[in-house]
Amino acid sequence: MTTTEQSPTAHDSGTSATQAFRAIRQQSRPGEVSPERISAVVGRVLAGIHDAIREEKVTYDEFQAAKAWLIEVGEGGEWPLFLDVFVEHVVEEVAAENQQGTKGSILGPYYLPDQQRLPSVAALPTRPDEQGTRLVFAGQVRDTDGNPVAGAELDIWHADAEGYYSGFAPHLPDGLLRGVVVADEQGRFEISTVQPAPYQIPTDGPTGKLIESAGWHPWRPAHLHLIVRAPGYRSITTQLYFEGGEWLDSDVAQATKPELVLSPQPLGDGRVRSEYDFVLERTR
């Protein structure tokens, strides 16, 4: 297990996550939200807060402490971290209610767009002395009718064997353990990498203070992040976990699902292999 007490700091991670979010937001160009929709959603959120205050008899001291904490979250750039850990899994559940195909999961705060494109059989960028169990991750991308999706892209990223993400930990080279793998004509892929470690979300900032004060743990189980996409299909954002992994049953982000757990098998040469097929839903 790896702590993040030395590197990266919550502030560093928050700043990087905020910058990445803004870049993705600019690229996606979301549509306008109507005043009626804003009123409905924000009204319900505020009503929930009001109900909690009444039911828990929140005092003025507690209210002022919450206000100070919210200011710290903003100043530390930790909104992406806090929202992705504690809120996004419910948004994803709602989105999945009318979707078919592979189960989704949260994006999380550590995604970086525009990574190196790689062929269908490829190794993610590593350091010469990269630590960790060598992992071969293979499978096929198909549609809901079972047909292969030729040229599907698998945007994959994950932590290293110490639980750190490139782009968010200053001691790691850019692009480490990240890539966009392009499946072959049969939708097949084979990715060589290392098995990631569980990690603790940064705890030296206000999000960490909240977790400690509430008596919660800050750990996430080891996982691979993926966005699987192809023209004419709904993109899938998901995470794949490892059977028997620590924190699998008590993920701080509540993002694990039994359908997303891999069972790595030894290859006899120190490597392990996991296979997983993705199913994409047509949008037209």
Rank of each mutant, 00 (worst) to 15 (best):
P221N: 05
A197F: 03
V261P: 07
G244S: 13
H225C: 08
I191F: 13
L248Q: 01
A214P: 00
S213I: 05
L226P: 04
Y241Q: 07
K209Y: 03
Q254A: 14
K209L: 02
G245L: 01
T237V: 15
Y233R: 02
I201Q: 05
H223E: 08
L210M: 14
L226N: 10
D204E: 02
G232M: 14
E212T: 06
W216M: 14
A222W: 04
L226T: 12
G205F: 13
V194H: 11
L240Q: 04
L260V: 04
P196S: 02
Q195K: 12
I201A: 00
R234V: 00
P221M: 03
L248K: 01
L224F: 14
I191G: 08
G245V: 00
A197D: 15
I211M: 10
Y233D: 01
W219S: 12
T238C: 06
I227T: 08
G205N: 12
T238A: 07
S235C: 05
Q254Y: 07
L224G: 07
E243V: 03
A222S: 12
I236W: 05
P196G: 01
L240E: 06
V252S: 02
I211A: 09
A214D: 05
I191T: 11
S235H: 08
G232T: 15
E246W: 03
A230S: 11
P218M: 00
E246P: 06
L240A: 03
T237E: 13
W247R: 08
S235P: 11
K209Q: 12
G245I: 01
P196N: 02
H223V: 08
A230N: 02
A230K: 02
G205H: 13
L226C: 13
Q239F: 00
W216K: 05
T203I: 07
T256P: 05
G215C: 09
L226I: 08
T193V: 06
L248S: 03
D249Q: 15
H223I: 11
P202T: 11
T237P: 07
G208Q: 15
I236E: 10
W219R: 08
S235D: 14
V228A: 01
H225K: 02
P198M: 09
T256H: 08
P202R: 12
S235Q: 11
